[in-house]
Design a protein around this nucleic acid. Structure first.
Lengths: 230, 230
DNA sequence: ACTATGCTGTGGTCCGACCACACAGTCCGC
DNA sequence: GCGGACTGTGTGGTCGGACCACAGCATAGT
């Protein structure tokens, strides 16, 4: 058992037992080191891991926001995880596309059938309005596109699926951008994507779950095919 | 930009550019520190994060297996991530169950329709045989059960979905075990679970995708309802 | 009453040292 | 010549101590 794992176990146990809760703070690194009988560097390694896992957020200085604050941010570590494993080339882009289709078609169907999260849908439409602005660069467009898809995924109210979707869309952003030159005509593509977005939202609003799922499936697969992302 | 992030960026860039590949080794910590003009503790924090992300595996000593070897283990960090966020109580068990149903019903349908991975199916059946042994403790049973569900998820050939499923099933193992006392009659429950497993495999083998998906959905939801896991 | 100043505690970084480990080459006894 | 013991070397693992930057707060001075 490595020393830094002592800290991880301790923190996980404290979280599970309610001794640590969201918004609370970890003991100081020096104090934690003394309590566990290990050195500060070992504690720091553990805190780094916790930070990389989205469990704590560290900040210098004093006051209530300083120190290692307990947060619950599963999306950013998931993104980093995907990015790294994408970089190793052992995570095929095709699998990611397939996963997106699965998750997004499910959330679209759920959202349409349950008609929950109406205000979220308004947020998504606001993003679509911003995407209508002329003169957007492909980068700006795809950042908004990512936000839109993440907003849709949140409609179903499943935090795990929403986090996974958010991470997927963010992790592949640079790959998507790099593939834009593969498109025959970016402007024409953008026009098509905008129209598809609107029809997806319309289907969800109309409660047509199967229709929304089919539209979003075609939307995603169509783009990846056109951009020749594999 | 914190110093340890320098290392992370460097490693990710090296991976993406092919300068580092699976099975290769990171430069030594001391060497890396000198190259980047930072201290060894900063390098170590980064290596810890990479290790926590399943990108490297560290070992002491010398020889080809020593040092920081590049690996691709997305499942174990995902498991840790889920466990930690489950511990914070900001990841509802219901969302996990819902995700399992979504992923597993999809993989079952895919596997049935494509009839791919026949040998994997044999492996899964071997697990079922071992689960038939009398006298298994609930812990042993559920470990085999976890392996079975992971083997099923691998049938569809999507490494991302397989990794997520594997992590889900592993992360909730302790929670499942803790809920066994909620069951009215463990032995009767086990008999039912075994029969459901067999019928799922049979449906996949027969190419009945919708049937397999429905069976596995009922299987998962039924157990969580019986165990009162929420 | 208000402002400025130092105090205190936080994480961020670094240095140098020592340990345990595992392999590889070498030395010594046979 | 051969084999086993042994030292050398490089790896990560751990430690203690030190200094820095930062942010809030108590206090002294105006």
């Amino acid at each position: 058992m490595k020393n830094y794992e002592l800290v991880l176990n301790r923190v996980e146990a404290d979280l599970a037992a309610g001794r640590l809760r969201l918004g609370g703070r970890l003991p100081g690194e020096r104090s934690l080191a003394e309590q566990l009988g290990i050195s500060r560097p070992s504690v720091r390694e553990a805190v780094r891991v916790l930070e990389a896992m989205g469990v704590v957020r560290t900040a210098t200085g004093s006051g209530p926001d300083a120190g290692a604050v307990i947060v619950a941010e599963p999306a950013s570590p998931l993104t980093a995880l995907l990015r790294l494993h994408l970089a190793t080339n052992h995570l095929p882009m095709g699998d990611i596309v397939q996963t997106r289709v699965l998750l997004e078609s499910w959330t679209a169907r759920e959202a349409a059938q349950n008609q929950a999260g109406g205000e979220q849908l308004v947020v998504a439409e606001g993003l679509l309005d911003r995407m209508d602005e002329p003169g957007l660069t492909p980068e700006e467009f795809h950042l908004l596109d990512a936000e839109f898809h993440v907003a849709l995924s949140a409609l179903a109210g499943n935090v795990l699926i929403a986090a996974v979707m958010s991470s997927l869309r963010t992790a592949i952003h640079s790959y998507v951008l790099a593939a834009v030159p593969n498109l025959a005509d970016w402007d024409a593509t953008a026009v098509g994507l905008r129209a598809e977005h609107r029809s997806i939202v319309a289907a969800i609003r109309a409660g047509q779950g199967d229709e929304a799922a089919a539209l979003i499936t075609a939307h995603i697969e169509g783009f990846y095919r056109a951009a020749q992302l594999r």
